[in-house]
Nucleic acid binder design. Structure first.
Lengths: 274, 274
DNA sequence: AATGCATAATCCGTGTAGCGGAACTATGTT
DNA sequence: AACATAGTTCCGCTACACGGATTATGCATT
């Protein structure tokens, strides 16, 4: 065998590995050698690519030290990425309103492969604060209220596929309860909201609801995290109601403003309308 | 002349141009031809790079349409980028507290070249909401309260340099008042806070204070935006006091937890301490 | 100071990976 | 049906990236 299925621009793939390595290093940054160990690429190559990456602003070498950090321009890029179809702007008022009504922490998540990606959050004013997820954090679908709502809102065939997918079975320390999951999904669909399948943080718990897009599947999820004592019955029904109302409104705005239709389809529809 | 000073990995530079082009296109995404027009590169090259960029997850081609969006993994990367040295985590409680105390919108900004980059914000509960900046937005230094505080907090020689820098004179529709700026900087330094040099959004105004890092220069700025009627005197003094207190605490935490010292220096200091 | 050990920067010959013009296909428009 | 526009594939040429070897730098230890 020559190369596996290597088609693609090598340098760019390598550059991506480097960025990923630096991102994994987190707030502390990474040095050339760290990256070499992590990626297995030769130091020479990394050195060359580092130069380019610094040049384009994706990496940053503070003063002239040997530690590299992710470049600040990536902040703007990342934020634009999370605003695809204007979702962030549309959802912001709903998140804010929920956080005010409930006092708890509210999250907005979208699906990224077999994971849920947290793209926004608003922390409420209730004195005891629970804020487990940060923007950019990922969870395997089905392991927290939001990601469960997102999963349950997918078409059935996709659910099967996602549950089977190997990467889905275990990501980090979180393992998906493959056995119990179908029941949880059924429950979510029946009741219109999702509860946390297992307690991740002792004392904290949450609720999630799907945000429907065109085609009847979930494009996002709104979820809420609070101390478990504040999820008991009189309050829970109220919370679910609020979440569902905001999700419905958001869904409506999404469908009106950013259709999942191609330009051609829109054209055709406009033509028909005239 | 052969090539300008072109050293660097071409493909990666090109890939960066493409990502930038897609980012500039914003929430609506970009097509191959759009990118070709914007970057001036040949379609073949773009096509090849697009393939790679999709493969590494930096671009996303929804279903199989011809529109490319920024990949969701960039959200996580961008967020890590803004958390350099743990700034985001350290600052979050202060932002939250300020937003609660004041009811107004609070921003956290850092310097990126001759611009200020907004890396976090919390919208307060006051019924009239002003939220001009979004996370990832940039402003030339000196054009808004936060960026002015950031500028005034730099060492004098850097200020001169930044004010001279051509790119600084006009970015987008914002033009820096080069003439009035030195006075504004002096005022900011004397009073310990900055006011908006000019009104960007009618009826809205703000205050900014620097967050000091090691070496006595500003590493970040806290700022606050509100309706101008809420900035008149009895209240303004109170706001400045709150901002300065939070900035001071944040500064202290920054110095304690994430020093600008190299690993060796830390080593030596620890050794001395024993 | 002197030595030793990392890590980072530079050099350079080799081979291939990336380049882009042109031709082709697909899709929507008049 | 003919046109227009956007995207894809082909292919030969060369510039460009590769990585082993070498040198330079910066910190710790003696």
């Amino acid at each position: 065998m020559k190369q596996e299925t290597a088609d693609g621009v090598r340098s760019v793939e390598r550059a991506a590995s480097i960025i990923q390595a630096v991102a994994d290093a987190g707030e502390a940054g990474a040095r050339l050698t760290d990256i070499a160990i992590k990626t297995g690429m030769s130091k020479t190559t990394i050195h060359r690519l580092l130069g380019t990456l610094v040049k384009v602003g994706w990496l940053d070498q503070e003063d002239k030290s040997s530690t590299f950090y992710l470049g600040l321009p990536l902040v703007a890029i990342g934020n634009t990425a999370s605003d695809r179809h204007g979702l962030l702007d549309l959802a912001a008022p709903h998140l804010k309103r929920l956080a005010e009504l409930t006092g708890d922490t509210v999250y907005l998540a979208v699906r990224m492969g077999s994971q849920a990606l947290c793209v926004d959050r608003v922390i409420g004013n209730f004195p005891i604060r629970t804020a487990t997820l940060r923007i950019g954090d990922r969870r395997p679908l089905g392991t927290c209220p939001g990601s469960l709502a997102l999963l349950a809102g997918q078409p059935q065939d996709l659910i099967e596929e996602l549950m089977l997918s190997a990467s889905h079975l275990q990501i980090g320390s979180l393992k998906v309860d493959t056995v119990g999951l179908p029941r949880l999904i059924a429950q979510s669909r029946a009741s219109g909201y999702s509860m946390s399948p297992e307690v991740l943080v002792p004392g904290a718990d949450g609720l999630g609801v799907p945000v429907m897009g065109a085609g009847g599947s979930a494009v996002a999820a709104l979820s809420l995290e609070t101390v478990d004592s504040r999820l008991s019955e009189p309050r829970r029904t109220q919370l679910v109601e609020w979440l569902q109302r905001e999700a419905a409104e958001l869904s409506e705005n999404l469908l009106r403003l950013s259709p999942g239709f191609s330009q051609r389809e829109v054209h055709r529809m406009l033509a028909d309308a005239i």
